[in-house]
């Protein structure tokens, strides 16, 4: 049995659309790994992530630890899977602390029952914010934070849900290098605690740095799955990004494969 997420022959189209966003995707993803979900724009990465998170319309046969995701009530689902959207903002005034506190809603079927657990919730929030390094922002208004700071807060909110599966859609993309490194380290730590982390990323180098495995989508179909060096081959990169001439070479410091721009077609 797969301890993480599995789908078999998953197809999806948005209501009213005539084309499939995803077609026939089969995946088995075990816990204890960081998975980078890669592919060009519009290949279905974000949709796949949302289906895993259980927030797209319709019934999908997504299994977590063998059980069907769609059979879980919403609050149970959120205890097992946390999803971080590319944008984390609200039009309403809210401090970073309050925003992270929202992640505790799934602790009970009846939100009203949470009123007696204020202290426990607050401890969890402080622990999560400390872990993602954004405790210092807790009294700041969410609206006043920079994009990268908001992403740290969003990551903390995902952690307080207590889920062992984290789905991150471009969730590190706006952070500075310092915070990207810290969060990368955090992801590795979480994985050693048995998390499954699926990251949608456009930055291939970041993906290579932190991921154990890559899943590559093209046109809604699964193109490749496997270790970084197996999946990111020069031939495949040409198929994925035909407009860019890319060169893969190992990083001088770590030996991890890195992707560079080669000669541009004009040059």
């Amino acid at each position: 049995m797969i301890s993480g997420i599995s789908v078999y022959g998953l197809s999806f189209r948005y209501p009213g659309s005539t084309t499939d966003v995803l077609s026939g995707v089969s995946l088995e993803l075990d816990r204890g790994k960081v998975i980078a979900l890669l592919g060009p724009n519009g290949c279905g990465k974000s949709t796949l992530l949302k289906i895993f998170a259980g927030i797209t319309p319709g019934q999908h046969k997504v299994r977590i630890s063998g059980g069907l995701l769609s059979e879980l009530p919403a609050w149970r689902r959120a205890q097992r899977i946390a999803y971080v959207a590319p944008e984390f903002r609200s039009e309403f005034p809210m401090t970073a602390f309050e925003a992270v506190l929202l992640g505790r809603i799934c602790q009970s079927a009846h939100a009203a029952a949470l009123w007696g657990r204020k202290q426990e919730d607050e401890h969890a929030v402080i622990a999560a914010m400390t872990r993602t390094g954004c405790l210092g922002l807790r009294h700041r208004e969410l609206q006043s934070l920079s994009g990268g700071e908001r992403q740290l807060v969003a990551l903390a909110r995902a952690l307080v849900q207590g889920a062992k599966i984290l789905l991150l859609d471009e969730a590190l993309s706006r952070m500075d290098l310092h915070h990207q490194a810290l969060c990368g380290k955090l992801l590795r730590e979480l994985v050693s605690e048995g998390f499954l982390i699926i990251v949608v990323a456009h930055d291939l180098n970041l993906a290579c740095e932190w991921a154990d495995e890559c899943v590559v989508l093209l046109g809604g179909k699964l193109l490749a799955q496997g270790s970084v060096s197996e999946t990111l081959t020069p031939e495949r990169l040409r198929v994925l990004y035909p407009g860019a001439q890319l060169v893969i070479s190992p990083s001088p410091a770590t030996g991890v494969p890195k992707v560079f721009f080669g000669n541009t077609p004009e040059a």
Partner: peptide, 8 residues
């Protein structure tokens, strides 16, 4: 979507 992801 945000609310759904939070378990509502």
């Amino acid at each position: 979507e945000g609310a759904q992801a939070l378990g509502v």
